[in-house]
Write a protein that binds this DNA or RNA. Sequence first.
DNA 1: TCGGGACGATAACATATGTTATCAACTTCA
DNA 2: TGAAGTTGATAACATATGTTATCGTCCCGA
Lengths: 224, 224
Amino acid sequence: MIIEFKVYCSYPQSFGDLFPYLRKSHYLISMFFHFRNKFPRLNVYWDKYLEFQQRLDVPAKTILLDEGKISQNYIYIEKGCVRSYFNKNGEDKTVQFFFEEEGLSSLESFVNNLPSQFTIETIEPSVIYLLPKQYVAQLIAELSNEADFTQMILYMSAQRQTHYINEFVSFIRDTPEERYQHLLQERPHIVQRVPQHYIASYLGVSTVHLSRIKSKLAKGKTRF
Amino acid sequence: MIIEFKVYCSYPQSFGDLFPYLRKSHYLISMFFHFRNKFPRLNVYWDKYLEFQQRLDVPAKTILLDEGKISQNYIYIEKGCVRSYFNKNGEDKTVQFFFEEEGLSSLESFVNNLPSQFTIETIEPSVIYLLPKQYVAQLIAELSNEADFTQMILYMSAQRQTHYINEFVSFIRDTPEERYQHLLQERPHIVQRVPQHYIASYLGVSTVHLSRIKSKLAKGKTRF
DNA sequence: TCGGGACGATAACATATGTTATCAACTTCA
DNA sequence: TGAAGTTGATAACATATGTTATCGTCCCGA
């Protein structure tokens, strides 16, 4: 088993060639960082690789990765927030938001050297760390010696899969108004920190309609 | 690493208690079956456990698992097709379709002994195999001795995660008409075999509107 | 500090989609 | 074979949502 992962130690140009079974499991790498605070043991590795990371102190609306380009770095957010989006018919469609202590990359692009489907851009002025690909490979090789390695992977991938299933089911089940209310209840920090027009496209509605939804909910509340 | 998985050999009543890191990775079990044809090596195990399986020859609209009840069996489809759905305000909302040589369970329910969020029901007359929980646990324990075990898990979970991300993004990006056309192009067998009103709720529209979409597309085609 | 851009509310109108009802074709089953 | 259920098309109307335009506020950089 461990031998399988030792292969990753050779610091490849293209990760894809080294993941014979994993060409599509791009999200794997993301998860170590994304959940690192849930597995404090990982912090040792994080600290060790700190010297290889580039620290960026960037303003809002800084593009960290352009749609169509190939991801070269893993991105970790120390301060601020970030969104991923794509362009459809000249219009931004926001897919996801990321905040402090979360990590991300355009994962298929990162692992397989493919053009990214998404643009990654800061929303607020942010402090970002970039870890180049080859060090990520090295980190994974080291992590594979951790006894809990496989269980961590499973736990993390399960978390993410549950998340995406719920997002998907919500579109079948709920009206835009209901989706907005769920967002308010379950992830209020998004509504508080993210400009409304990004939230609109994330909910799948126009900015005008989200404004209407808010207005309607406000009227409901002021009844007594 | 392998020691971690040996734990699973004790044939528990509740899987949840035995997956300390995996309470939410219910989908794990599903994947062995779902992708078994992509990993022919698994067929040995499948055959070995055949004697513990219950064969059902059932008509259409047979409920295999009721929303709100706890899943006791892994479900494998030899012939026919099946959908999973939930009820919202008295109305069925179809989430997913399954066909020959695919396996499923209401996964959170199955692993953690929780009430299922979804009902599972045959669409066509079908031949179904049910494998009770305790044998699934046993099977997983055996599989953990396979060298490719971890890589299989990763490959499979990546497949499923990619699928759900694409479903989710499609709702942000595409109109119902575009989603129907994608279905026609990418999974035409669904459109061919599944009654239209199930497809409508899967696409997130009313039956009437799906009918309109089809009619509009038909008119477009007959132009010359 | 001034001016432009980003953000958000709102109105008016257009289009998309839902709801209800009706009808026809086709199954299924007693 | 006949009756009842299932499936799907269509019409008429209601509601939801998109589009375009206008306005006001706020923020930030020259």
